[in-house]
Protein backbone atom coordinates (compact mmCIF):
# COMPACT_ATOMS: atom_id res chain seq x y z
CA UNK A 1 0.00 0.00 0.00
CA UNK A 2 1.31 3.47 -0.79
CA UNK A 3 -0.04 6.96 -0.27
CA UNK A 4 -2.12 6.79 -3.43
CA UNK A 5 -4.30 3.90 -2.36
CA UNK A 6 -6.70 3.34 0.48
CA UNK A 7 -6.66 0.34 2.79
CA UNK A 8 -9.78 -1.14 1.22
CA UNK A 9 -8.89 -0.29 -2.37
CA UNK A 10 -8.17 -2.88 -4.94
CA UNK A 11 -4.82 -2.06 -6.39
CA UNK A 12 -3.25 -3.34 -9.52
CA UNK A 13 0.17 -3.38 -11.04
CA UNK A 14 0.21 -1.76 -14.45
CA UNK A 15 2.96 -1.02 -16.92
CA UNK A 16 2.96 2.32 -18.68
CA UNK A 17 5.15 3.24 -21.64
CA UNK A 18 5.80 6.94 -21.24
CA UNK A 19 8.15 8.80 -23.56
CA UNK A 20 9.78 5.52 -24.51
CA UNK A 21 10.45 4.40 -20.95
CA UNK A 22 8.56 1.57 -19.33
CA UNK A 23 7.23 2.26 -15.80
CA UNK A 24 5.62 -0.18 -13.39
CA UNK A 25 2.99 1.48 -11.22
CA UNK A 26 0.87 0.10 -8.41
CA UNK A 27 -2.37 2.01 -8.63
CA UNK A 28 -6.06 1.99 -7.81
CA UNK A 29 -8.32 1.40 -10.80
CA UNK A 30 -10.03 4.77 -10.38
CA UNK A 31 -6.88 6.83 -10.77
CA UNK A 32 -6.79 8.87 -13.95
CA UNK A 33 -3.90 8.81 -16.37
CA UNK A 34 -3.06 12.44 -15.62
CA UNK A 35 -2.83 11.81 -11.88
CA UNK A 36 -0.56 8.82 -12.37
CA UNK A 37 1.65 10.76 -14.79
CA UNK A 38 1.87 13.75 -12.49
CA UNK A 39 1.94 12.27 -9.04
CA UNK A 40 3.21 8.70 -9.40
CA UNK A 41 5.69 9.21 -12.22
CA UNK A 42 6.37 12.86 -11.25
CA UNK A 43 5.98 14.02 -14.85
CA UNK A 44 4.35 17.26 -13.77
CA UNK A 45 4.53 18.99 -17.14
CA UNK A 46 1.05 17.73 -17.97
CA UNK A 47 -1.45 19.97 -16.16
CA UNK A 48 -4.96 19.65 -14.82
CA UNK A 49 -7.33 22.49 -15.61
CA UNK A 50 -10.86 21.14 -15.37
CA UNK A 51 -10.97 17.37 -14.88
CA UNK A 52 -13.89 17.13 -17.28
CA UNK A 53 -12.27 17.10 -20.66
CA UNK A 54 -12.97 20.64 -21.82
CA UNK A 55 -9.87 22.76 -21.22
CA UNK A 56 -7.28 20.40 -22.68
CA UNK A 57 -4.44 21.37 -20.31
CA UNK A 58 -3.89 17.65 -19.72
CA UNK A 59 -3.55 16.74 -23.41
CA UNK A 60 -1.00 13.99 -24.04
CA UNK A 61 -0.47 11.67 -27.00
CA UNK A 62 -1.68 8.11 -26.72
CA UNK A 63 -0.35 6.10 -29.64
CA UNK A 64 0.37 9.39 -31.35
CA UNK A 65 -3.09 10.90 -31.00
CA UNK A 66 -4.06 13.76 -28.67
CA UNK A 67 -6.06 12.53 -25.68
CA UNK A 68 -7.42 14.19 -22.53
CA UNK A 69 -5.45 12.48 -19.80
CA UNK A 70 -8.09 13.51 -17.23
CA UNK A 71 -10.75 11.45 -19.00
CA UNK A 72 -8.77 8.24 -19.16
CA UNK A 73 -7.94 5.85 -16.36
CA UNK A 74 -4.27 5.01 -16.10
CA UNK A 75 -5.15 1.33 -16.41
CA UNK A 76 -6.70 2.00 -19.82
CA UNK A 77 -3.38 3.30 -21.10
CA UNK A 78 -1.55 0.03 -20.49
CA UNK A 79 0.03 -1.23 -23.69
CA UNK A 80 -0.19 2.16 -25.39
CA UNK A 81 2.61 4.58 -26.20
CA UNK A 82 2.14 7.69 -24.09
CA UNK A 83 3.95 10.89 -25.02
CA UNK A 84 4.07 13.96 -22.78
CA UNK A 85 5.50 17.45 -23.02
CA UNK A 86 8.67 16.22 -21.31
CA UNK A 87 9.55 14.41 -24.55
CA UNK A 88 9.73 17.50 -26.76
CA UNK A 89 13.15 18.89 -25.86
CA UNK A 90 16.35 17.06 -26.74
CA UNK A 91 16.89 14.62 -23.85
CA UNK A 92 20.67 14.95 -23.97
CA UNK A 93 21.10 18.69 -24.38
CA UNK A 94 17.75 20.01 -23.17
CA UNK A 95 17.58 22.04 -26.38
CA UNK A 96 14.01 22.97 -27.26
CA UNK A 97 12.34 21.31 -30.21
CA UNK A 98 11.11 23.26 -33.23
CA UNK A 99 7.51 23.53 -31.97
CA UNK A 100 8.66 24.80 -28.60
CA UNK A 101 10.97 27.32 -30.26
CA UNK A 102 8.09 28.54 -32.41
CA UNK A 103 5.99 29.12 -29.29
CA UNK A 104 8.68 31.27 -27.73
CA UNK A 105 9.37 33.17 -30.97
CA UNK A 106 5.69 34.05 -31.36
CA UNK A 107 5.00 34.66 -27.65
CA UNK A 108 2.49 31.82 -27.73
CA UNK A 109 2.51 31.49 -23.96
CA UNK A 110 2.20 33.77 -20.97
CA UNK A 111 1.58 31.97 -17.69
CA UNK A 112 2.42 28.68 -19.37
CA UNK A 113 -0.20 26.59 -17.60
CA UNK A 114 -2.15 25.58 -20.72
CA UNK A 115 0.98 25.40 -22.87
CA UNK A 116 1.88 21.71 -22.50
CA UNK A 117 -1.64 20.83 -23.63
CA UNK A 118 -1.40 23.04 -26.71
CA UNK A 119 2.06 21.69 -27.54
CA UNK A 120 0.89 18.08 -27.42
CA UNK A 121 -2.29 18.91 -29.32
CA UNK A 122 -0.21 20.54 -32.05
CA UNK A 123 2.41 17.82 -32.05
CA UNK A 124 -0.21 15.14 -32.60
CA UNK A 125 -2.11 17.17 -35.15
CA UNK A 126 0.88 18.18 -37.28
CA UNK A 127 2.14 14.59 -37.35
CA UNK A 128 -1.20 13.56 -38.75
CA UNK A 129 -1.78 16.59 -40.98
CA UNK A 130 1.58 18.12 -41.94
CA UNK A 131 -0.09 20.06 -44.75
CA UNK A 132 -2.56 21.80 -42.40
CA UNK A 133 -3.40 25.41 -43.27
CA UNK A 134 -3.53 28.21 -40.75
CA UNK A 135 -7.32 27.93 -40.74
CA UNK A 136 -7.11 24.18 -40.06
CA UNK A 137 -4.74 24.96 -37.21
CA UNK A 138 -7.08 27.58 -35.75
CA UNK A 139 -9.87 25.04 -35.76
CA UNK A 140 -7.79 22.47 -33.91
CA UNK A 141 -6.43 25.02 -31.45
CA UNK A 142 -10.09 25.66 -30.54
CA UNK A 143 -10.04 22.25 -28.82
CA UNK A 144 -8.15 23.71 -25.85
CA UNK A 145 -8.54 26.76 -23.61
CA UNK A 146 -6.01 29.49 -22.99
CA UNK A 147 -6.88 32.44 -20.79
CA UNK A 148 -3.79 34.58 -21.39
CA UNK A 149 -2.95 34.91 -25.07
CA UNK A 150 -6.17 35.35 -27.02
CA UNK A 151 -4.97 32.37 -29.13
CA UNK A 152 -3.61 34.37 -32.07
CA UNK A 153 0.04 33.78 -31.21
CA UNK A 154 -0.57 30.09 -30.49
CA UNK A 155 -2.04 29.69 -33.97
CA UNK A 156 0.85 31.67 -35.47
CA UNK A 157 3.44 29.59 -33.63
CA UNK A 158 1.98 26.28 -34.78
CA UNK A 159 1.54 27.57 -38.32
CA UNK A 160 5.15 28.80 -38.41
CA UNK A 161 6.36 25.42 -37.16
CA UNK A 162 4.27 23.57 -39.77
CA UNK A 163 5.54 25.84 -42.53
CA UNK A 164 9.16 25.38 -41.45
CA UNK A 165 8.75 21.60 -41.28
CA UNK A 166 7.24 21.55 -44.78
CA UNK A 167 10.01 23.64 -46.27
CA UNK A 168 12.59 21.45 -44.51
CA UNK A 169 10.99 18.36 -45.97
CA UNK A 170 10.92 19.95 -49.41
CA UNK A 171 14.60 20.88 -49.13
CA UNK A 172 15.38 17.38 -47.93
CA UNK A 173 13.48 15.85 -50.81
CA UNK A 174 15.21 18.18 -53.26
CA UNK A 175 18.63 17.29 -51.90
CA UNK A 176 17.77 13.64 -52.13
CA UNK A 177 16.65 13.95 -55.74
CA UNK A 178 19.89 15.82 -56.58
CA UNK A 179 22.00 13.01 -55.18
Amino acid sequence: MNDTTGPGDDVQLITLDVNGTSHEVITAPRRTLVDVLRHDLRLTGTHVGCEHGICGACTVLVDGLPVRACLMFAAQAEGARITTVESLADPATGELGDLQRAFTAHHGLQCGFCTPGFLMLAQGFLAERPEATKEDIREVVAANLCRCTGYQTIVEAIDACATARRSQRATGAEEESCN
Binding site: R38, L43, T44, G45, T46, H47, V48, T84, V85, E86, L88, A89, G94, L96, Q100, F103, T104, L109, G112, F113, T115, P116, L119
Partner: peptide
Amino acid sequence: DPRLLSGRGRFVD
Protein backbone atom coordinates in the same frame (compact mmCIF):
# COMPACT_ATOMS: atom_id res chain seq x y z
CA ASP B 1 9.78 30.09 -21.66
CA PRO B 2 12.30 27.24 -21.69
CA ARG B 3 11.08 25.73 -18.43
CA LEU B 4 7.40 26.35 -19.14
CA LEU B 5 7.71 24.86 -22.63
CA SER B 6 9.40 21.70 -21.50
CA GLY B 7 7.20 20.82 -18.56
CA ARG B 8 9.72 22.01 -15.99
CA GLY B 9 7.63 24.83 -14.55
CA ARG B 10 6.74 24.31 -10.92
CA PHE B 11 3.16 25.15 -10.11
CA VAL B 12 1.61 24.66 -6.70
CA ASP B 13 0.14 21.26 -7.55
